[in-house]
Nucleic acid binder design. Structure first.
Length: 569
DNA sequence: CGTGTCTGCCC
DNA sequence: ATTCTGC
DNA sequence: GCAGAATGGGCAGACACG
């Protein structure tokens, strides 16, 4: 297939905001793709070159794309970045500069999707010295044989950011529309096949053959599975209202997700939320599993949480994050930063999928098959109740134990891989807040192109009469001006305060004060104040406050200490 | 061989 | 992670 | 209510470069 044909589909999809329209466009394309041998083209619709379960990486992102574009077009990197600031999309920058370039050279238009896939697939294979140069040549080869539009999407795929408003949900609907009759049963069949396979090319092939083939897709222990995600609850009461009574309450641990598998051969495999395998990083966990769970095959969902080996106090996420991508000194880390596995679900057990079993059954089974060993592996702390007071107490205890809050679950719900569902809620305590002054900003990309979109925040160091950076915030502002403090409004306020511009970043005079809410304060190696905020959000302007009225460094430090000690006021 | 930059992925 | 928005 | 997009801190590892 000519790459040009695919790009025309991308353009159509980008132009049409309606999901129904997108589905129709895509399904028409898929009808053509049915006759193509290479179904991998569907990965290109996802903005990738590999199925979801693949751990392959391009190793290319913004900076190398800028470099590649500069090389292919003959325009300086600085100029490319300037255009990027204005246009907010490196893909569109590529379109512009390559179109200009093309006007000056003769070129024949024969780039195929196969060639694009081919070069993309070579990127993850390159390792060692000279890698970057080799990658540059592979990209340049594609860019120089591209039209403007083709260049645009080559770059966007390299950035894994297609911006055509299409993700797996829309592709799922398009697969149904192109291969089967459009109804709930078929949509469910495609979704469930995808949940188990994590490979849309494979699902598409099966869908072409019919619903029977889709339903044959098996859940296989040892193959990664997407995890189910939670929505937010506002309170215990809200939780009860939404999941019903009685409800299941469990600790929400401040660690990271682990999908633990034991396959047919008895081999334990551990996957993260994004389907990366981390078995090698956690030999301790493998041991705990082998010693404390007696079953032939299974898939468990769990949270690994770190603790201090001496004091046995739970540690914040930041500390154990060292272990996740570790390749060296694993044994040392195993001793210094042990993890406790808190298992909260079982999705497969001794040859059978439990995805459609009610949660009550799964959690009961779970408690039978795990030998609880504190500081190693255990089923997660749980309370099943219809009593709001008891639930409140449980929640408070979770916070006292240094955890983030609680999960609230419905007893009858199935397990939906990859979905964010209303029968599994998370509840965290009210947010902390600071007033901070904006001392810098960055121009946005995509739908935020042309406006400032990320804002550098500073506190005030009274002793030295200086403003010190403590992080950046972006989310919380409105897209539309009528709705409240918007990106446009804040940009207009900051525009005449700009003192320097480099690339997409600007420095502004400390003038505008905003209210920030955040979950936690952490020590920061990045920011000059030495601290950073975890999950910061902007809520509103504080026009009544002058820059020197913002949170002081001293207050930040006090707050940090207070949080560490969990003092309640 | 040490350092800085970049990427990808945890939250 | 959080948040906002279009459908 | 779902799906999608745009953004936060910080970690390890890989590579380039001096």
């Amino acid at each position: 297939m000519l790459y040009k044909e695919l790009c025309e589909i991308y353009e159509e999809l980008e132009k049409n905001p309606s999901r129904l329209a997108k589905t129709t466009i895509l399904s028409n394309f898929l009808k053509k793709l049915k006759h193509e041998k290479n179904k991998e083209i569907i990965y290109l619709i996802q903005g990738k070159a590999f199925p979801d379960y693949s751990e392959k990486e391009f190793g290319i992102s913004e900076q190398l794309c800028i470099k590649a574009l500069s090389k292919a077009s003959g325009i300086s990197s600085k100029e490319i970045v300037n255009k990027w600031r204005k246009i907010g999309d490196l893909g569109k920058v590529a379109e512009e500069v390559m179109t200009k370039k093309k006007q000056n050279t003769l070129f024949s238009h024969k780039l195929t999707t196969e060639k694009v896939l081919d070069n993309l697939k070579k990127l993850p294979e390159l390792i060692g010295k000279g890698t970057v140069d080799k990658k540059m040549s592979l990209i340049s080869e594609l860019l120089t044989s591209s039209s403007g539009i083709e260049a645009k999407y080559i770059i966007r795929i390299l950035l894994s950011d297609l911006r055509i408003g299409v993700a797996s949900g829309t592709i799922r609907d398009a697969i149904v529309e192109s291969c089967l009759e459009k109804n709930e049963e078929n949509t469910k069949a495609v979704q469930e096949s995808y949940d188990k396979a994590n490979d849309l090319a494979l699902v598409f092939e099966k869908a072409c053959k019919g619903i029977g083939s889709l339903n044959e897709t098996e859940l296989i222990p040892g193959h990664p599975l997407k995890v189910m995600l939670a929505l937010k609850a506002e309170s215990i009461q809200d939780g009860f209202e939404r999941v019903g009574k009685p409800a299941v309450f469990e600790y929400k641990y401040d660690g990271f997700r682990m999908l633990i598998n034991k396959d047919e051969k008895g081999k334990v495999k551990i996957f993260t939320r994004r389907l990366d395998e981390v078995t090698k990083q956690f030999p301790d966990v493998v041991k705990y599993i082998e010693e404390n769970i007696d079953a032939k095959t299974f898939i468990l969902d769990s949270e690994a949480v770190g603790y201090d080996p001496k004091t046995k106090r739970y540690k914040p996420f930041q500390d154990i994050s060292q272990r996740i991508r570790r390749k060296y000194d694993i044994e040392k880390l195993e001793k210094e930063l042990p993890v406790e596995i808190n298992v909260f679900d079982v999705l497969y057990y001794n040859g059978k999928s439990l995805l459609n079993e009610p949660f009550q059954k799964r959690t009961e089974l779970l408690r039978k098959i795990i030998k609880n060993k504190k500081y190693r592996i255990q089923s997660s702390h749980q309370l099943i109740t219809d009593d709001e007071k008891k639930a409140e107490e449980f929640y408070k205890q979770a916070l006292k134990d240094n955890q983030e809050g609680v999960m609230i679950k419905n007893l009858t719900a199935p397990y939906k891989p990859g979905a964010r569902v209303g029968y599994m809620l998370k509840l965290k305590p009210a947010e902390n807040e600071f007033d901070l002054v904006i001392t810098g900003a960055e121009y946005g990309t995509g739908k935020r192109a042309g406006t400032l979109s990320s804002f550098t925040l500073s506190c005030y160091d009274k002793a030295n009469d200086k403003f010190l950076e403590i992080g950046k915030a972006s989310t919380g502002l409105k897209e539309k001006e009528e709705e409240g403090l918007s990106y446009t409004e804040l940009t207009n306020l900051l525009k005449h305060l700009i003192t320097h511009e480099t690339g997409r970043e600007v420095i502004v005079k400390p003038k505008i004060v905003v209210r920030i809410i955040y979950q936690n304060i952490q020590r920061s190696p990045t920011y000059e104040s030495g601290f950073a905020l975890r999950f910061p959000r902007i809520t509103h302007l504080r026009p009544d406050r002058t820059p020197k009225d913002v949170a002081t460094l001293k207050e930040v430090i006090e707050e940090y200490k207070r949080m560490e000690l969990k003092i309640e006021y």
